[in-house]
Simulated scan of single mutants.
Amino acid sequence: MITVTSMDINQILQHLPHRYPMLMIDRVLECVPGERVLALKNVSINEPYFPGHYPHQPVMPGVLIIETMAQASAILAFKTLNDRSNDDTVYYFVGIEGARFKKPVLPGDQLQVEASIVYHKRGMWRFKTRAMVDGQLVSEAELMCTLRTIDVPVQQ
């Protein structure tokens, strides 16, 4: 039996190490561990990057659309491993292929991000990702990532 789950912001915070201003996922609509995830990013004019990108025509930077797709992929990886982010687990990019940007993402848009697992072998992950606004494709890419454990200094 396939388990489909949704996640609110408190559950997302348990699975991603990101915090403001780099937390990009607001809600997970559905997640099927080992297969796919569908997540939301509500794009507000109050985002910290809009005053500089661009002052008279605000557009969400493409690199942050990719970051949103990567965070959705990270949630899928953590849920697939039945694990949560912690202070000694980091999710690193190792490659991006076929990144395309079809339409600008503007304040007021709701970015729907889909990620599906292409493969997972020896700690390496490959995801096929897509970002949509109002049912129209705005970006797509294949992301390669790895989960790593790091040494965390002991605070005294």
Score class of each variant (00 low, 15 high):
residue 110 Q to D: 07
residue 64 L to V: 11
residue 62 G to K: 07
residue 53 H to P: 01
residue 56 H to Y: 07
residue 46 N to S: 08
residue 111 L to F: 11
residue 61 P to D: 10
residue 62 G to T: 11
residue 58 P to G: 12
residue 86 N to R: 11
residue 114 E to M: 15
residue 60 M to N: 06
residue 116 S to P: 06
residue 90 V to D: 00
residue 94 V to I: 15
residue 96 I to W: 02
residue 71 Q to P: 01
residue 67 E to N: 09
residue 51 P to C: 13
residue 115 A to M: 14
residue 93 F to G: 03
residue 54 Y to H: 10
residue 76 L to V: 11
residue 55 P to T: 13
residue 42 N to W: 03
residue 98 G to W: 05
residue 56 H to T: 14
residue 66 I to A: 03
residue 86 N to V: 00
residue 54 Y to C: 06
residue 112 Q to A: 15
residue 97 E to A: 10
residue 99 A to M: 11
residue 94 V to H: 00
residue 70 A to C: 06
residue 112 Q to G: 05
residue 88 D to S: 03
residue 90 V to A: 02
residue 96 I to F: 04
residue 87 D to L: 03
residue 114 E to S: 14
residue 73 S to M: 12
residue 87 D to I: 05
residue 100 R to K: 15
residue 109 D to C: 02
residue 115 A to R: 04
residue 116 S to K: 11
residue 104 P to L: 12
residue 45 I to V: 07
residue 48 P to E: 12
residue 44 S to D: 03
residue 116 S to Y: 03
residue 47 E to V: 08
residue 97 E to Q: 12
residue 51 P to N: 10
residue 49 Y to G: 02
residue 48 P to K: 01
residue 78 F to W: 04
residue 85 S to T: 14
residue 92 Y to D: 02
residue 116 S to N: 14
residue 56 H to D: 14
residue 46 N to V: 08
residue 103 K to G: 09
residue 43 V to C: 00
residue 115 A to D: 13
residue 89 T to F: 00
residue 80 T to Q: 07
residue 61 P to V: 06
residue 78 F to N: 06
residue 106 L to R: 14
residue 75 I to P: 00
residue 73 S to L: 11
residue 95 G to D: 10
residue 83 D to R: 08
residue 91 Y to V: 01
residue 115 A to H: 10
residue 56 H to I: 12
residue 98 G to E: 13
residue 56 H to M: 11
residue 111 L to H: 08
residue 89 T to C: 02
residue 55 P to E: 15
residue 109 D to K: 02
residue 84 R to E: 13
residue 88 D to G: 01
residue 71 Q to M: 13
residue 105 V to S: 12
residue 57 Q to F: 13
residue 79 K to C: 12
residue 83 D to W: 02
residue 96 I to R: 02
residue 97 E to I: 10
residue 65 I to T: 12
residue 73 S to Q: 08
residue 110 Q to T: 15
residue 44 S to W: 00
residue 64 L to H: 02
residue 60 M to P: 03
residue 52 G to F: 04
residue 55 P to M: 15
residue 46 N to C: 04
residue 92 Y to W: 05
residue 60 M to E: 04
residue 50 F to W: 05
residue 56 H to E: 14
residue 54 Y to F: 15
residue 80 T to D: 07
residue 116 S to T: 15
